[in-house]
């Protein structure tokens, strides 16, 4: 498997641990990541609000770059997944495509719609498959109860994203099970983390994040895991503020999805960047016994 690797902005900066763990996992699973230093930001849903056409064009450029290399595009962020797929869908409209074509042509780029956009989680769920993944696990995450947190744009709108089921998905839980951990089912798993309004009305955003974490905890989760670094910001980086909003101590370790896979494949916490989290993952790692818990 070979993909044009689209890490997204956050994984290249404040969420570097996501990039680190992705590279570890892909190496281990034989997924080749081809890098394109000329990829731009996907717009993160915010650019779309200021100028939708520009947002589509920006992603058409990203897609055309991958297309020129003959590769499908691999994201590691639910929001990137959503925005790039959104562009593919919108470019099916002739009037949109005509405008974007006109802007791409002077750049020597052409968009045909051939480039598929997929997310690492979906590659593991559908291409690698839970069974093969299970067979490669070196250190089963036995005893760990993990609450999957999908991130909206991996799921919805379901018709655009062709996600398995927007309301009752199970891909993520299937993978958690394959890693040896126990998936926790709770309502919040398909809900929003609050990130999109973190800069608009922070307390509301924190409250939303807090409710989902509380929900996971109430259902017995030892840790949460997310395939979206923006969710990770809400759930981990701002968990202290979420605690204030829901009025309780949450202490919920939140893994990036590839970190969880990496742990099961035998990586050390440092290799996966776990010490970079705001909420310590120690309590979860201790449950696993066999992992050396970093100081």
């Amino acid at each position: 498997m070979r993909f044009a690797y689209y890490p997204g902005c956050v994984a290249q900066e404040s969420g570097k641990e996501l990039d680190l763990s992705t590279r570890y996992v892909c190496r281990a699973l034989g997924i080749e990541l081809v890098e394109f230093p000329n990829f731009s930001c996907c717009g993160s849903g915010f650019l779309d609000e200021a100028n939708g056409l520009l947002n589509v064009a920006l992603n058409a450029r990203n897609l055309a770059i991958a297309e020129r290399a003959g590769l499908d595009l691999l994201t590691i962020c639910s929001t990137c997944q959503g925005m790039l797929t959104f562009a593919n869908r919108r470019l099916e409209r002739p009037e949109v495509k005509a405008k974007v074509d006109g802007a791409l042509q002077p750049l020597g780029l052409a968009y045909s719609g051939r480039t598929k956009v997929t997310h690492l989680l979906r590659v593991l769920a559908n291409e690698v498959g839970p069974d093969r993944l299970r067979s490669m696990v070196k250190r089963p995450l036995r005893g760990l109860k993990v609450a999957a947190f999908y991130g909206c744009h991996l799921l919805r709108p379901a018709d655009e994203l062709q996600s398995e089921s927007a309301e009752e998905p199970h891909e993520f839980e299937d993978l958690i099970e394959a890693l040896g951990a126990t998936p926790v089912l709770y309502r919040g798993r398909v809900l929003c983390c609050g990130f999109p309004i973190l800069f608009v009305k922070e307390r509301t955003a924190n409250r939303i994040a807090g409710r989902q974490i509380h929900d996971a905890k109430a259902h017995g989760a030892d840790a949460m895991a997310t395939p979206c670094p923006l969710c990770h910001i809400s759930l981990d980086s701002f968990q202290n503020k979420a605690e204030r909003e829901v009025g309780e101590r949450l202490d919920m370790p939140v893994f990036h999805f590839p970190q969880l896979v990496g742990l099961a494949l035998g990586a050390s916490p440092e290799e996966l960047g776990l010490p970079r989290h705001l909420v310590s993952t120690r309590s979860a790692l201790e449950k696993l016994g066999s992992v050396a818990v970093p100081a």
């Binding site: 589509v56 064009a57 405008k99 750049l107």
Partner: peptide, 21 residues
């Protein structure tokens, strides 16, 4: 890399009227 391409896209489209998506 190629940030000037992004700027060109902006130049080409930013002034355009809103397009229903």
């Amino acid at each position: 890399d190629g940030v000037e391409e992004v700027r060109k896209l902006y130049e080409a489209l930013q002034k355009d009227e809103e397009v229903p998506l």
